[in-house]
């Protein structure tokens, strides 16, 4: 059931991101909801789920929009995988965790993206690359992760230990 819900979330995310999100950019910066979603899945379900859904969402995005297949898949796969190491390490789940990890994920995403583009011999100026890596997108994605966290709390219901009848 949870796998089905996550797949639906990934599909929905891709479609919404392609159609609605480009119109709500602030200062010309568009948030990347995929990063926020992958970070949340990873924190909640561990690195196996996180990496697999990162791969799925990334490849879907690549096939639909870019010419080079695999760039987003590669980066989101590793965002999911690395974030997954933080699974079950926090004693309390606060909204601060997804905020921080989504921010770090965004830095990683933009850094890897510029690196891959550089090795694919695209003309990327160093200053522009640094500007893109440390842009307002970090805060933006973090905030979206917090909002999604509050929504997803309803999907991932933690089983609690109970004795006797409810």
């Amino acid at each position: 059931m949870i796998v089905f819900l996550i797949i639906m979330a990934v599909l929905l995310n891709t479609i919404i991101q392609a159609t609605l999100i480009p119109y709500i950019g602030v200062f010309g910066v568009v948030p990347n909801t995929s990063i926020a979603l992958i970070v949340l899945i990873s924190l909640k379900k561990g690195r196996v789920y996180g990496s697999m859904f990162g791969l799925l969402a990334g490849l879907l995005q690549d096939v639909l929009f870019s010419l080079t297949i695999g760039v987003n898949g590669f980066i989101l796969f590793f965002i999911g995988y690395f974030t997954g190491f933080a699974h079950n390490t926090f004693t309390r789940e606060t909204a601060m965790n997804p905020f921080i990890f989504a921010g770090l994920g965004t830095i990683f995403y933009n850094f890897m993206y510029s690196l891959i583009q550089f090795f694919l011999s695209r003309d990327i100026v160093f200053v522009d690359a640094v500007k893109s890596i440390f842009s307002i997108e970090i805060v933006y994605n973090g905030l979206i992760a917090v909002v999604l966290f509050l929504i997803l709390q309803r999907i991932f219901i933690q089983p609690s230990l109970r004795f006797g009848r409810r």
Binding site: N32, F65, S66, E137
Partner: peptide, 11 residues
């Protein structure tokens, strides 16, 4: 009908 997500390209 759709724009590429992300801030790197305009497609």
């Amino acid at each position: 009908i759709g724009k590429e997500p992300g801030n790197w390209f305009d497609r």
